[in-house]
Design a protein around this nucleic acid. Structure first.
Length: 269
DNA sequence: ATGGCATATCCTATATGA
C-alpha cells in the first residue's frame, strides 16, 4: 500500500498536474493540502473519473485538505482536530482506508514569528499532539501525513542561514515535532534514508528548484503497528519539475500490509 | 529589511504562503 502526501497549492489550477501524478504513480492513498477551494469547488468528477474516491474539507481561498483512495471510498472519522470548536480553518481530515487510519493535516505556517500566527501554529500543534496520543498506541494501523511546516533538523534544509528566523525552523516548532515523535511515531522518509538530503519543497524564488535548494517539510508518520510494515519511502521529485508545478513535490511511504499480524481488535479471540 | 514568485479573491490591488 502506497500512501502519499501532496501540497497541491490550488487544486483547480493544479488539477492537470495532479491527475498526471495519480496516473503515473498510482498511490493507493493520497492526502492533499492547500486546496484553496471551497467545498463546491472541489473537482470531484475528474478525480472520480481517475479512479479515486475522495473526502474533502474545503475552505474559500486558503487551506483545504482532501483524502483520496484508489478504487474505493475513504471512510470518514473526523473533519477537524478536537480542542477548539471556534477553529474554522480546513486543516485536518481523518479517515479509514483499507483498515488504516489516515490523518491528513496541514499544519499552520506560523510566519511571521513572533506574532499571533506563530501562536496559532503552536496551539494547533499542541492540539495535534494531544489527538495523536489517542492514535499512536492504537492496535489499528495509523498514519499522520501532510504538510507539517516543520524543518525537523538542519539536515532537512539546503542552508539554514537565511531561514533562522523562519517559523519552520524555530526551536519551539522543532520541540513540538520532537514531542510528537516521542509518542512513538516513525518519520518514514528519514528512517528509510538516514543520511540523504531529501527535500519536498522548493520555493518559487531565486531558482531554488533549479539549484535543488529545498526544505523537507512534508512528512509521513506511521504508528508502531503500521511502521512494522514499512518497506519504502521517497519523494516524487519529477512532479516539481513539471510546467506549472506546485512548490511542493509528493512524498510517499510504502507498506506491506501482509506483514501485519492480525489485530486483537475486531478479530475473534 | 526587502524582495524574489505564485495562488487566491472583495481581481489592475491585496492577503497569504514558507
Amino acid at each position: 500500500m502506497k500512501i502519499a502526501t501532496f501540497n497541491v497549492n490550488g487544486i483547480r489550477t493544479r488539477l492537470p498536474q495532479l491527475l498526471r501524478w495519480l496516473e503515473r504513480e498510482q498511490p493507493d492513498v493520497a492526502c492533499l493540502q492547500e486546496l484553496k477551494a471551497a467545498d463546491d469547488g472541489f473537482p470531484h468528477g475528474e478525480i472520480r473519473a481517475a479512479g479515486y474516491g475522495a473526502l474533502w474539507k474545503g475552505q474559500r481561498a486558503w487551506n483545504g485538505v482532501a483524502i483520496l483512495a484508489r478504487g474505493g471510498e475513504p471512510s470518514e472519522r473526523r473533519r477537524a482536530l478536537p480542542g477548539d470548536d471556534t477553529d474554522e480553518q480546513g486543516r485536518y481530515l481523518e479517515a479509514t482506508v483499507q483498515g488504516v487510519v489516515v490523518a491528513c493535516l496541514y499544519l499552520p505556517n506560523g510566519n511571521p514569528q513572533p506574532g499571533p500566527k506563530f501562536d496559532y501554529k503552536l496551539a494547533w500543534f499542541e492540539r495535534l499532539i494531544a489527538h495523536a496520543a489517542t492514535l499512536v498506541a492504537s492496535p489499528q494501523p495509523a498514519i499522520l501525513c501532510g504538510d507539517f511546516n516543520v524543518v525537523p533538523t538542519d539536515a532537512d534544509i539546503y542552508d539554514p542561514r537565511s531561514w533562522r528566523k523562519d517559523a519552520l525552523l524555530q526551536p519551539a516548532t522543532r520541540e513540538c515535532w520532537q514531542r510528537l515523535l516521542a509518542q512513538g511515531w516513525t518519520d518514514a522518509i528519514r528512517q528509510q534514508h538516514p543520511d540523504q538530503r531529501i527535500y519536498t519543497f522548493w520555493d518559487f524564488f531565486r531558482q531554488h528548484w533549479q539549484r535543488d535548494a529545498g526544505l523537507r517539510i512534508d512528512h509521513l508518520l506511521p504508528n508502531p503497528r503500521l511502521a512494522a510494515a514499512l518497506i519504502g519511502a521517497g519523494v516524487d521529485r519529477w512532479v516539481r519539475g513539471e510546467p506549472h508545478a506546485s512548490d511542493h513535490a509528493p512524498a510517499w511511504a510504502r507498506f506491506d500490509l501482509a506483514m501485519l499480524k492480525p489485530s486483537r481488535v475486531g478479530n475473534s479471540p
